[in-house]
Nucleic acid binder design. Structure first.
Lengths: 217, 217
DNA sequence: TTCTGTGAATTTATTCACAGCA
DNA sequence: TGCTGTGAATAAATTCACAGAA
């Protein structure tokens, strides 16, 4: 799903660069584990699959972190990127829909590490209400507005079927979230003041088959 | 995760257009349900969040399907796009990792509809082996090569932790898949003849917080 | 009219090539 | 020598604007 985004739109960092930042970030844990304090653009290229030229252009677009002949200071880069991506603080999230997808998000380790905290989960199924999974309590969807408001959650994750996605998104927006991450395979809309981003599994597969179809012929 | 792709690389359709195709495709089911046989670029814009100009440019890039003053024939467009995306046939897939994420993929309705069939699933956990979920049998990972080869599966889905992702991908490649969809938050590599695409949930969130951070200040 | 298709203009991103610092 | 930072060249994608078919 595309991000039909329009928003404050940074003047500072080009969109494509911003979307590559998470890749660099992820490669750092490996470098740090290896005890490396500096890395070259070449090293980053190998770790991320992004060309070395591009790496340098990207990093140069928000400052001069490298030392010629040496490379980049991993720690410093890591800190700067986290700041740019807004990861130097915790984000409070609401998860709506505790099916298997929702469950996998609850137990997904990567979130907590990056400061993403699911503070409350919601579901329609009465048999799930009240349970606590991975330390997160499950509430009835009816109480979504109330709970999200009370807990001041900022990001909403939509993990319900398409048919209910827009309604859930509306409720989240109404409750004051500033961004919505949508896993349902449909477009959802929200006021301009709220960011919406979609992740669509089918689209990813279709993208693959597009290339497969071509190479096949 | 970016797609460190390199491959046959179509000369026909620009990459960004191809990645928007799934969105158009998805909007068609709504139009067909409403009984509409033709739609304007404006209609498509509203349904997909893509600008009307862009819609026309996109569609024009692979043929003339519209009638001036009328619009586009939904059925015809649908058929053509499916063909372009390689959806006019079934794709046989292997799922590796039957945790919650794997489960959500197994039961995800969108796949079957688009011709994506998970023909076999694999897991390490002995207690899961032999079960059949959503009509799909679960095999031990040790038998991956054998089963994937025997069943001639073409696409592998990696839904295991990062630490095992590359090994699983290697086994899939060795067993003959032509493409790998990776859900682990790490880069995996494969020979050029095999397509790799990554889907990273954390990256999506980080992308959101990047914008949130900016609009905030 | 309505609505497409497309050339031309513009903006944006990638790639190249190399000057310059450690 | 090794590796960054960047200006210039190229390539690509988006936006605009309008001619022309139904």
């Amino acid at each position: 799903m595309p991000t039909p985004k329009k928003h404050p739109e940074s003047k500072t960092i080009p969109e494509p660069v911003a979307s590559r930042l998470p890749n660099y970030l992820r490669s750092f844990v490996g470098f740090e584990r290896e005890g490396r304090s500096t890395v070259s653009s070449q090293d980053l290229a190998e770790a991320t699959g992004i060309r070395a030229d591009q790496v340098r252009k990207d990093l140069a677009s928000f400052g001069s972190f490298g030392q010629r002949g040496i490379g980049y200071d991993v720690k410093k880069l890591d800190g700067t990127m986290r700041e740019i991506l807004g990861l130097n603080r915790a984000w409070r999230m609401a998860l709506v829909g505790v099916g298997h997808l929702g469950m996998s998000l609850l137990q997904y380790g990567g979130f907590a590490k990056a400061g993403f905290r699911i503070e409350a989960a919601f579901d329609q199924d009465p048999s799930k209400i009240g349970w606590e999974l991975e330390g997160v309590k499950i509430w009835p969807v009816q109480s979504l507005r109330q709970v999200v408001r009370d807990k001041q959650l900022e990001i909403g994750i939509v993990a319900v079927p398409s048919s209910r996605a827009q309604a859930v998104a509306d409720a989240l927006v109404d409750a004051g979230v500033k961004a919505v991450l949508n896993f349902a395979p449909c477009l959802i809309t929200a006021p301009n003041s709220v960011l919406v981003r979609g992740v669509d599994l089918s689209s990813e597969l279709e993208h693959l088959t597009y290339f497969l179809g071509k190479s096949k012929k």
